[in-house]
Each structure stands twice: as C-alpha cells, then as structure tokens.
C-alpha cells in the first residue's frame, strides 16, 4: 500500500514537474527547451544503461547489441502510432485527447517492449548457452543485422528514415519509465534470482554445480534487458519525431557500454550517473567545437586511469548513507 501511494506521488510529481518546466503551470516561467531536451535524452540513456547493466554488470555477460533492441523498439512503436494511431485513438474516443495520446503511447511502447523481448529471446537462447566472448560477437552481429534489415523495409522509410512520428513522449513519460526501469532492475538484483545472476557472473561452473539453471537465468535477464531497451527506443522515437537507422549503429551500443563502465559495472546508481555524465560531457563540451570529441575521449581515458572500476565501482547510493546497518555490497565483477 505504501509503495502504491509512493508510485502515485511519483507519477503526479513527474507530470506536474513537466507542466511546470514547459511553462504550463506558472505563467511566464519555463526552462529552455534545449535544457529540457538534454535532460530528457539523459533519461532515455538512463533506461538504456540501467537495463544493459543487468546483463553486462550483474549477469557478467558481455552484450554489444543493445542498440539493435532499441532500434526494434523505436521502429515498431513508430509504426504502431503511424499505422494504427487513429484507430486506437478512435477506440478510446470517449477520453480527452491528452489521455487518448497516453493510451496510444502506452500501447505502442508495450508492443515495442514485446517485440524487443521476442528478439532478445531468439538471440539469447542459442548464444547464451555459449561462454566467453561468443555472446559479444553474436550480439554485435545481431545489432547490425537488425539495422540493415530495417534499412530494407520500405514501409518504415528504409534509407530515408521514419519521419512524421507524433511527439507523444515528453520529460514526464521518459522519467516515469526511467524510474520504473531502476525499480525493476534493483528489485531483480536484490531478489534471490538476482543473487543467481551474480553467482553466474562470479563463477558459472560453480553456480551450475549448485543447481542453478544458468542458461534459463541468463536468458531471462537478457529478455528483460532487451524489453527495456525496446521501451527506450520507443520513447526515443516519440520524443525526436524522426528515426533513422544511423542512430542505431554498433557505436550506439558502445556508447551505452561506456556509460555503464564509467559509472561502475554492477552498480545501478553508477549506471544512472554514467548515463547523465555522458550527455553532460558531450553537451557541455559543445563550446570547444571541433575539439569536442577529442576532449571527450581524453576525459574518458582519464576517468578510466583514475577509477578503473568506474566512478562508483560496485557501490550503490544507499551504501553511502547506511552507517550502522552494514549493507552487503554486491561483489565487484571479476575482470576478463
């Protein structure tokens, strides 16, 4: 009951906050749309980073295909709103328009998450039986296959990109899903299933010897992570109003890996920090024009030299506040 009330309060604060920031609440006050856009894109990065951390940080599997699942989510949800938008709005015609759009967005994101989850299942089942670097190679290949596949579908624009997507997502929706992602992942990690995942990360053979169905656990965590990437893709499409396959190259997958590595693998707080830091750095360095990406790379190198385990390492935010009660930290991932 307490959680339910908290959730309602959280949603109310988000949507009021959104109205406040865009100038709908206090006349004459609004923040710059540029600032709001950067903050919103940071929210999408948070969903991507936290969900990838479930695979790379907690389960210890190295996936480089997150952008592929994001692409599925982006294109599927965009197709749903473009092709069936009016019919879905019509079906809930008795609601006020703002609520019609919310229903449409939720349906689109739901289908996006389902499709990304199915794709994650199809990729995960054969490749997660393997150990070592094979998953990295399979997911890298898969991400590129998805991209090229979409590039050849004319119904979603092919090489032209998918334009004319309605702007259904906003700051509040993005942070609602970012909050949900953080909640779900932290619940999973603290559950007995989460301990199973950490056991697999630490020593797969030992985990198997203890009776853990390692493939099943890995596939579940992979599918959950893929579905979340699909939601992030759907929000991305409905926020930017245009998607192109160039946004989902393997470089995007690496960007998400960079976020979780600088934040600290195996730390949810770290992933959030990494995701925010990534966008703050790339936008903050804009004033250096053509040296922007050079400085950005240098900063990444410095962070990795100073803090090889990432900024937070394996620690979580709450471990900084817990003085008396010893919070058992999740053990750090073993390199290699």
């Amino acid at each position: 009951m307490k959680g339910f009330v908290l959730a309602i309060v959280f949603v109310a604060v988000l949507f009021l906050g959104n109205a406040f920031l865009t100038g709908g609440l206090v006349p004459g006050f609004s923040v710059s749309p540029y600032f709001l856009q950067v903050v919103s894109l940071a929210g999408i990065n948070i969903i991507l980073a936290v969900s990838l951390n479930l695979i790379n940080g907690f389960t210890g599997q190295f996936s480089i295909g997150h952008a592929g699942f994001m692409a599925i989510g982006a294109y599927v949800s965009a197709y749903v709103t473009a092709a069936f938008g009016d019919r879905i709005r019509g079906a809930v015609g008795m609601l006020p328009p703002a609520f019609q759009n919310s229903v449409l967005l939720l349906i689109a994101l739901g289908i996006a998450a389902a499709c990304a989850a199915v794709a994650g299942f199809l990729v995960g089942v054969p490749s997660l039986r393997l150990r070592g670097d094979y998953l990295a190679i399979v997911t890298l290949g898969f991400g590129e296959i998805i991209r090229v596949f979409i590039l050849n579908i004319d119904a979603v624009g092919g090489a032209r990109g998918f334009s004319g997507i309605p702007r259904l997502a906003n700051f509040a929706w993005i942070y609602l899903f970012a909050g949900a992602t953080i909640l779900v992942v932290s619940r999973i990690v603290r559950s007995s299933f989460g301990r199973t995942l950490v056991a697999i990360r630490e020593d797969e053979i030992a985990a198997e010897a203890m009776g853990v169905n390692t493939t099943r656990a890995k596939v579940i965590s992979f599918v959950v992570s893929s579905a979340m990437a699909g939601v992030a893709g759907g929000l991305f499409a409905h926020y930017l109003m245009y998607v192109h396959t160039n946004s989902f190259t393997f470089i995007k997958s690496f960007e998400i890996i960079i976020m979780i590595v600088i934040g600290g693998l195996g730390s949810i707080t770290g992933s959030v920090l990494g995701a925010v830091l990534y966008i703050v750095l790339t936008e903050g360095l804009r004033q250096f024009a053509q040296y922007r990406m050079v400085l950005f790379s240098l900063l990444l190198i410095v962070i990795m030299i100073v803090r090889p385990q990432g900024i937070l390492g394996h620690r979580e935010l709450r471990s900084f506040f817990a003085r008396r009660r010893r919070v058992e930290p999740v053990p750090p991932p073993v390199a290699g």
């Binding site: 749309p33 540029y34 894109l41 991305f236 930017l240 160039n246 946004s247 936008e283 804009r286 053509q290």
Partner: peptide, 23 residues
Amino acid sequence: AVEDDQSKPEEAATAVTKLINQN
C-alpha cells in the same frame, strides 16, 4: 553560430534545439 552533429540524426535534433533556444 555553428554546431556539430557528428552526422547523427539525434545529435542534429539536439544541436538545432540548442541553436534555436540558446543562441
């Protein structure tokens, strides 16, 4: 005023938003 978009569509959207609202 010049902004770089790294040849990425989403960066182009951010750069244009910045140019319009900040510059």
